[in-house]
Write a protein that binds this DNA or RNA. Structure first.
Length: 955
RNA sequence: GGGCGAUUAACUCAGCGGUAGAGUGCUACCUUCACACGGUAGAAGUCAGAGGUUCGAAUCCUCUAUCGCCCACCA
């Protein structure tokens, strides 16, 4: 009559079903404003880019967030986890271009294909024009956004889909424009011609953060610039000789005696035959190169600054395609690389190349396409950072925003102190258009929320909107408040802002966190989030970064389909120690798949026995198993006991169900409930510190090695009795009730980590409640303060006897055979404890019988002394090899001796006694006493064994 | 040029002042009516090296070595 449940857990048979269910039931919408007075917990998902599908980094991030969200929800808080996606301006534009290229040239293969598609796609984009191209981008967004959404659903993210946002939603875009206009009105946004990082391949300016640096071997060329009078020359050193074509000065340090006299004189720029001045500027380092530097204001940020100070002309010799301009004279039209070769060749021919040295230089490359970035003079929009950064620094310094781990906080602050203005315009099409209009008649620029009808200056009606779009991070910087309806003062904004927590990877700390903090403080007068947790990176088994080119990418969906979402989540969580990157591997997931299987089978065992409950004789038992209405998140009374930094409630803070019929508890139940309390408390503490690995390990160990290995085994005979017997025996029915409670509690503790299997099993428990999901039930099972150290100690004593007996058995070579045991102790209460639990001890240790001796064992016995103060001895019909017996005792004695000596050494040390804390000294004293006692008894045992032929056994 | 992290059992990693831990792997035994994706027992570590602080150091400090990361407008 047992229910059919497969022995091997197959996650694929339940996970997709629950994933759908959670979304369709809209389970994770926070309850209505009217219904809640208690605390809330809000977090906005870092919006994935619509450029691709989710990778393991996302899965780690979503898993960590989901664990915390489910946990807070089960603590009775009103939780909002708001999802969404980012339009990812430049990334998306590039991908859509590549798609266009792929369509045009479908037959290409190999590593070159990507680059060719990109080039072709870019050409086709320009050909088709903005309107058609943006249509393609929107199509891409629809498709990919949907993929990402399905993936998140499959991974069990408990987000509120009804509040999903996209950074280019109309309402969101209005917020972006609002922010731009206000910043402009305040003079924080300005437009100007400055040196920017220009990617010639992407055809746009990029910010400092989007530029990567790479050390590459290069050269330092020493070039002679002859003075006008032809009598002398000055030698400059450069790594970029082609830029000399745009030089407008040579600079030396005014304090440098070698050159002081030359300041004010003019040299002739070689190849160009242009006279340029020698100037003095503090910036020049006399130690470097020759101490004289060529100045190219149009192509180097430092030179630009020097040029500003000395009012030098700016000669642009390299254009936006990285080709030489007309200003480059004979070199016009050459690429920058070809121009370099030609310039070096010509200088050499002219005898002006003094020497060439090998030199390791740091090259700036475009983060996205790896093209060498060209510092170019260009008209762009900038955001002044200083005023915004000041507030953002203060918020972190005074703790209004807590950054975890501490290390990230320092890095954030360092960066903030040295912040530069932010170039926010991009020469791209996909993104938020800059709300500025240029008057074609008078060149006036109008920044406005709406397209102006006419030019306010000349009344002209020919106005053209600025073609540029905003850096994608400008809009994502508004994420925590723009998603809640800002600038309207919406109900959501009032209820869920500031967010309680933000979680992201280190790689976007500056890109995103810093900008959110600055813009949040600026526009809401409040921090965007109270805490910022920086998670680790997921690497492959060899600790390599996962990347497509290396081919070591693990796809979350693939591995999820192979082992189950729960297993992958648990594997990630159990490796997620703050500040440490995760080496992720199949093996790790496999071992947690095994854990899921263990849970499944424990449940299978329990549920098979609960199938009995349909028997009319057991109706009272079934009734007792039905949970009392579990406290849902709407109904939890507010409570001020603290969890973590902000005093939210604790998981499992409710009293043990007191309104149910009292059930008798065995020692094992007391032990189990006490452990449950310990575990609950430990998990609360770990999760409050973002120690996911600790919390995961705690519940893993509890479930497997305490609940399954000991508790379940211990109560097995009680709960597997036939119904009629179960009905008669109160002890058995109490065991069943207690087991059901512990199991349900364990499911709750596991749920944030393994939402699918726990949801499934929870629904299979006999129950009357109408709760729709375990995740919506408060945790009303265990009080973490209900620990019971006395019961724990007693149970541990019994465990010690059982383990020791198994150990001796194994060493005696007795496997299926059942020896008998003798336990001797002076402590009658100890013997009483064992006698009272004789049945499970014999069963779990695999013993035939047991007898108890008060005092010492007879002289011919050589027992095993245990820490709890008793001597254990096993005997079996055939003789035990005395040599083996002695070996074991001697080994034990040696170990004890070593430990004892250490304790004695410590206690003999006068300064230890006087300086160490009292409890530590007392602890060591206690330990020494125990060790001495045990050593003594072991010595006696050895003495009884006598010489090597001594017989210590009896039939 | 600055800054940071890592080095602990064969492998992957926890622990970060008070008796060295886990998972995987390994050895022996067990197909006992939840689970062999299992059970029981076990072997396995000068906690990179050298100094120092401390009653006490894997844990704190200094240096060294090896590996890795981030930031940086030194031509």
């Amino acid at each position: 009559m047992q229910r059919e449940i497969p022995t091997v857990y197959s996650p694929e048979s339940i996970e997709p079903r629950w994933a759908r269910y959670w979304v369709e039931e809209k389970l994770y919408r926070p309850s209505d404003a009217a219904a809640t007075s208690g605390s809330r917990f809000s977090l906005s998902l870092p919006p994935p880019n619509i450029t691709g599908s989710l990778h393991m980094g996302h899965m780690l991030e979503h898993t960590e967030i989901d664990i915390l969200m489910r946990w807070h929800r089960m603590c009775g808080e009103n939780v909002l986890w708001l999802p969404g996606m980012d339009h990812a301006s430049i990334s998306t534009q590039m991908i859509v271009e590549r798609e266009l290229g792929r369509e045009a040239l479908p037959d290409l293969v190999g590593p070159q294909a990507r680059r060719t598609w990109q080039r072709e796609g870019q050409r086709r984009r320009l050909e088709m024009g903005p309107e058609k191209f943006l249509d393609r981008c929107w199509q891409w967004k629809e498709q990919n956004g949907d993929t990402i959404r399905r993936q998140m659903e499959r991974l069990g993210a408990s987000v509120d889909w009804t509040r999903a946002r996209f950074t280019m939603d109309p309402a969101y875009s209005r917020a972006v424009i609002e922010v731009f206009v206000r910043l402009h009105e305040e003079g924080l946004i300005y437009r100007g011609q400055y040196i920017v990082n220009w990617c010639p391949r992407c055809g746009t300016a990029v910010s400092d953060l989007e530029v990567a640096h790479e050390d590459r071997p290069g050269h330092l060329w020493y070039i002679r610039y002859p003075f006008e009078d032809g009598k002398d020359y000055i030698t400059v050193a450069t790594t970029r000789p082609e830029t000399m074509l745009g030089d407008t000065a040579v600079a030396v340090n005014p304090a440098d005696n070698r050159y002081r006299e030359m300041i004010g004189r003019k040299v002739v720029l070689p190849l160009m035959n242009r006279a340029i001045p020698v100037i003095g500027d503090e910036f020049v380092d006399p130690q470097f190169g020759t101490g004289a530097v060529k100045v190219t204001p149009a192509h180097d940020p430092n030179d630009f600054a020097i040029g500003m100070r000395h009012d030098l002309p700016r000669v642009t010799v390299i254009d936006f395609e990285a080709q030489m301009t007309r200003e480059a004279g004979p070199y016009a039209g050459l690429s920058r690389e070809k121009a370099r070769e030609a310039v070096v060749r010509d200088l050499s021919a002219a005898g002006l190349l003094e020497k060439t040295e090998d030199y390791k230089l740091s090259v700036s490359i475009c983060e996205r396409c790896k093209t060498i970035v060209e510092p170019l003079l260009s008209m762009q929009w900038f955001l002044k950072m200083q005023p915004l950064a000041t507030a953002a620094i203060r918020a972190v310094e005074d703790g209004r925003i807590r950054v975890v781990p501490e290390n990230s906080r320092k890095i954030y602050l360092d960066w903030m102190y040295r912040i530069h203005d932010w170039c926010i315009s991009r020469q791209l099409w996909w993104g938020h258009r800059i709300p500025a209009w240029h008057c074609e008649a008078c060149n006036e620029i109008v920044v406005s929320r709406e397209a102006p009808k006419s030019c306010p200056k000349c009344q002209g009606s020919a106005l053209r909107q600025d073609p540029d779009v905003l850096d994608t991070w400008f809009s994502s910087g508004l994420w925590p408040f723009a998603t809640l309806g800002w600038p309207e003062q919406t109900e959501d904004l009032k209820r869920f802002y500031p967010n309680d927590l933000m979680i992201m990877g280190f790689d976007i700390l500056f890109f995103w966190a810093a900008r959110m903090i600055m813009l949040g403080l600026k526009f809401t007068s409040d921090v965007p989030f109270r805490e910022l947790y920086i998670h680790a990176l997921v690497r492959d088994a060899e600790r390599q970064k996962m990347s497509k080119t290396k081919g070591n990418v693990i796809d979350p969906i693939e591995i999820t389909e192979k082992y189950g979402t729960d297993a992958v989540r648990f594997a990630l969580a159990s490796s997620a120690a703050p500040g440490t990157d995760i080496a992720f591997s199949d093996d790790k997931v496999q071992s947690h798949r095994n854990f899921a299987n263990k849970i499944w089978n424990a449940a299978r065992f329990i549920l098979m026995n609960f199938a009995n409950m349909t028997d009319p004789a057991l109706r009272h038992l079934a009734a007792a198993l039905k949970p009392v209405p579990i406290v849902g998140f709407d109904a939890v009374p507010s409570r001020d006991s603290g969890l973590g930094a902000r005093g939210s409630r604790e998981f499992g803070n409710e009293e043990l169900r007191t309104d149910e019929p009292r059930t008798e508890k065995l020692l094992v139940d007391h032990w189990m409930f006490s452990r449950l309390a310990d575990v609950t408390r430990d998990m609360n503490e770990s999760l409050a510190k973002y120690h996911f690995h600790e919390a995961a390990y705690t519940i893993y160990h509890f479930f497997w090695h305490e609940f399954c290995d000991w508790y379940l085994e211990w109560v097995k005979p009680e709960i597997t009795r036939p119904p009629e017997e179960l009905a008669r025996r109160t002890k058995a029915s109490a065991a069943a009730i207690n087991l059901a409670r512990v199991f349900e509690a364990a499911l709750h503790l596991l749920h944030p980590f393994m939402p699918f299997i726990t949801e499934e099993l929870w629904h299979q428990l006999p129950r009357a409640g109408d709760q729709r999901s375990i995740s919506l039930t408060g945790f009303a099972l265990v009080n973490p303060r209900a620990a019971d150290p006395v019961s724990e100690k007693q149970f541990e004593t019994i465990q010690e006897v059982i383990v020791a007996a198994r150990n001796i058995k194994a060493e005696m070579g007795l496997h299926k055979e059942k020896p008998s045991a003798q336990v001797a102790s002076e402590d009658t209460r100890l013997l009483e404890l064992f006698r009272a639990h004789q049945e499970p001890i014999l069963r779990l240790a695999g013993l035939e019988a047991m007898n108890f001796v008060r005092g010492r064992l007879p002289a011919d016995a050589s027992p095993m002394p245990l820490t709890s103060g008793c001597d254990l001895r096993l005997f079996y019909e055939r003789a035990i090899e005395p040599a083996a017996e002695r070996a074991r005792l001697e080994r034990e004695a040696a170990k004890l001796k070593q430990q004892l000596e250490q304790a004695e050494r410590q206690l003999a040390n006068e300064s230890f006694r006087s300086r160490a804390p009292h409890d530590v000294v007392a602890g060591v004293e206690r330990r020494r006493a125990e060790l001495a006692n045990q050593s003594q008894r072991i010595a006696e045992s050895l003495a009884r064994l006598g010489g090597s032929t001594g017989s210590a056994t009896q039939g």
